[in-house]
Amino acid sequence: MIPAENNLPRKDDFIAVHDLGKSFGAVHALRGISFSVPRGETMAIIGPSAAGKSVLMKCLVGLYAPDTGRICLDGEDVSTTGNETRKKWAEKTGMLFQHNALFDSLQVWENICFSLIESRKLSRKVARDHAVDLLGLVGLDPDSAGLRPSDLSGGMQKRVGIARAIATDPEILLLDNPTAGLDPVLSNHIENMIAAIAQKRGTTVITITNDMKIARHRYQNLAMLHDGTLQWTGPTTEIENAGNAYLTQMLSGSSQGPITMRTGKRQDQLFA
């Protein structure tokens, strides 16, 4: 494990999280999380189920206010929700949710450009053209603009979700499991797309993924969460030399190791 001092937020870090903690009642979802991501870089968050990955992401986008610690975006403290700074950064952040959370009541193009129409007062015609452009970017047919989310397959919904996340041309892109439940070919396509968008626009990307191959080879940085704590963070190039038992087990998927299930038992003890 890298000592905590290495993870103190530095001024030049674009996203800097320091000693973040979040509880729901008696459940500690996150404890003492510190990491940072430089501007324009990418980071993958990995970890077993119920490790707190999605909670961390919802703290980053401002849906949850952290109980302790700080979140700094480009040097500005955005830890408290609901203030002007937080709102400003919410507009500069695009997020894809684990289950897409597309708006069932709206057409695909309205989904993509909803905040542009509502917050930035874009005319519906301009917004629709913009949505059609974005659909092309994520590899969907322009005709799908007029469909409802329920008319789309899982992979198409994911791509609409990504199109919605990048519609406002955000500086930060947060993706919660963008390839979960998709076949390897489509996963690869979507990861290519994310990389291309990030590179072209200089977007800082943080992605939660369960695909270790993608996490290792497509992202510059890695954060390994386990039971609400950060077990390891650093550049993906240093994974081999990390010597972290949690990370080693997570990457190999082995049942032998320190990772515990929600029952509090280690995985290898579960069926013993």
Binding site: K58, G62, E91, M95, F97, A101, F103, R164
Partner: peptide
């Protein structure tokens, strides 16, 4: 679903 509120919130909607 609660996710619909969250998605709207994350888009910065009132």
């Amino acid at each position: 679903p609660h996710g619909q509120w969250e998605a709207a919130d994350s888009l910065g909607l009132k």
